[in-house]
Design a protein around this nucleic acid. Sequence first.
DNA 1: TCTATATCCTGTAGTCACTACAGGATCAAG
DNA 2: CTTGATCCTGTAGTGACTACAGGATATAGA
Lengths: 132, 132
Amino acid sequence: MKPYAIGELSDRTGVNIETIRYYEREAILPKAVRASNGRRIYDDEDVKRLHFIHKCRSLGFTLKEIISLMSLVDTGNYTCKQVHELTLVHAKEVRDKIGDLKRMEQVLVEMADQCSQGNVAQCPIIDSLFDG
Amino acid sequence: MKPYAIGELSDRTGVNIETIRYYEREAILPKAVRASNGRRIYDDEDVKRLHFIHKCRSLGFTLKEIISLMSLVDTGNYTCKQVHELTLVHAKEVRDKIGDLKRMEQVLVEMADQCSQGNVAQCPIIDSLFDG
DNA sequence: TCTATATCCTGTAGTCACTACAGGATCAAG
DNA sequence: CTTGATCCTGTAGTGACTACAGGATATAGA
C-alpha cells in the first residue's frame, strides 16, 4: 500500500485532477488524508474506488446513482438481485435514449435527402424546420 | 396578425414560458415588443421563429448552432448546399452518440446476464465495476 | 364594486458534471 | 540555487434550462 499523490491517482485512473477534487468536495470520494504539507495522499483502496466511479460514469450512471450504489456496497447491504435490477433499469434508460437519437437521425437524413444541394437560397430543410 | 401574450405563445409552441424569457435574455429570440403595461407582445412571426427553434432543439441542435442557422436564414446569405452539409454533420454527431450509447447498453446487458440474481451479496456486476 | 384567481414582471439562484482559471505554496532535479 | 513540475484553495464559467421570491396587473364572477 504505497501512497500516491493526486497526480498519480489521476494517471492510474484516467480521472482528471480537478475532477478528483470535485468528487471530494461533493462527497463522492471520502476526504483524502493529508500529508504534513497539506497535500492529499491516496492508496490502492482509493484507486479501486475511483475506478468504480469512473467505470460507472462511462456507463452513463449519474453521480447520484453511483453514490447509492457505493453506499450499498459499503454497508454490504445489497443483494445480487438488487444490483441486477438497478442495472436493467439503467440499461432501459440508455435504450430509450438510443431510440430518441435514432428518430432524430432519421429525420435529419430524410431532410437532407430532400435537399437539392443547389446554390439557391430556397431549401427544403429550412422550410421543414419552419413548418409547425 | 393578432397579438399574443407570452402564455399563449407558450401554448402555441409548446415552449415553457421561462424558457421563452430565457431565449430573449440570451438573444436567441429578439427582444419582444412591450405593451403599455410592460407585458411582452408576440405575433405569428414569433410563433414561426419559436417553432423553428423548438424543432431544431428537438433534433439535438445546440442553441449556438440554431443561432447561426437563423442568422443564415435572416440574412438570406445561405445556399441549400450549405444547409445540407450542416445537417449531415449534425446527423453524424447524432450517429456517433448512438454508437456510444449502444456500447454502453451492451456492457450493461452483458453484466446483467452474468448475474445470478440471487439473494447473496456477492455480485458479478459490482465485481466487474471494481476491476480496472 | 369588490374580490379571487390567473397571468405577468424582474432578478436571482439552482441543476448536473465537470472544467478553467488566478494566485500562491512547495517539491524534486540539475 | 534556480527552474519547472506539482500541488493547494477558492471562485467562476459551461449549456440549457428550471424554480423560486416578491411584486404588479388583468380578468371573471358575485
